[in-house]
């Protein structure tokens, strides 16, 4: 039984191979980039604007607002990373309604790649925001004993990110495949709709968790007495 689109291999040369995950990822990238380019090519700053521009503006401002609500003071800085995470995962889930489409997020390789990106991005943003020393100090807080636990938590949450998304996406596709073999067509459709919902929820969860991690890493820990002392 096939659990991942990685197993569909179109071409292979040594370690280099062209599997369904990569192909569908490129397809998604193409759709997202070309669609964005087509719409943003004719942007207007007037009061009347096209519906597509309205849609994109709603999506972008919603993401910006969400990032801000998590507690990041300058959302434009993190918009590229977090927004793309959300859009990629969400688009991959949406495209499952297309017959024959295998979501790239249904491959543990893809979710692991995304989780690794988060794993690297969190300390990067943290260091850029509060400096290397301050960031590293946050690992030994409140006491030095906490250092191994902090490191373990860092790794385990990355693993959890990857496995959570993979599990949800893979299970959705798997359930539909199983249902197709034993039930009439009406049930797989319902399950597909349910899959759309879980896909959107997973996209939201993935990007929000990444935002929370970044927020935790970039937050400056001010001394409590300093805040209370009168100037």
């Amino acid at each position: 039984m096939r659990l991942s689109p990685d197993e569909i291999i179109f071409w292979q040369q040594g370690v280099f191979k062209l599997n369904a995950t990569l192909v569908f990822t490129w397809a998604l990238m193409l759709v997202l980039a070309v669609g964005a380019r087509l719409i943003t090519r004719r942007l207007v700053t007037d009061h009347t604007r096209s519906r597509w521009q309205n849609l994109l503006e709603i999506v972008v401002t919603a993401i910006v607002k969400q990032i801000e609500e998590v507690g990041l003071p300058h959302p434009e800085k993190y918009l590229g990373f977090l927004g793309t995470l959300f859009l990629f995962v969400a688009t991959a889930s949406l495209c499952t309604v297309i017959p024959g489409f295998e979501p790239p997020t249904g491959s543990l390789s893809t979710t692991a790649a995304l989780a690794l990106c988060v794993l690297v991005a969190v300390p990067m943003f943290g260091i850029s925001e509060q400096g290397l020393g301050n960031y590293l100090k946050s690992y030994v807080k409140p006491t030095f004993i906490m250092l191994p636990f902090n490191i373990i938590s860092e790794i385990s949450r990355t693993l959890a990110l990857a496995v959570r998304l993979f599990g949800n996406m893979m299970s959705g596709a798997m359930i539909i495949a199983i249902l197709l073999t034993i039930t009439p067509f009406i049930f797989p459709i319902i399950m597909t709709l349910l899959g759309l919902l879980t896909g959107m929820v997973q996209a939201y969860i993935f990007s929000i968790l990444a935002a929370v991690y970044i927020a935790a890493a970039t937050r400056k820990r001010e001394p409590r007495t300093g805040a209370a002392s009168p100037t």
């Binding site: 659990l3 370690v15 490129w26 790239p104 790649a113 690794l116």
Partner: peptide, 14 residues
């Protein structure tokens, strides 16, 4: 389940 070449390629893709 994890193909490390695909992981690298996906990081790049992302």
């Amino acid at each position: 389940l994890i193909d490390w070449f695909t992981v690298g390629a996906q990081v790049l893709n992302f």
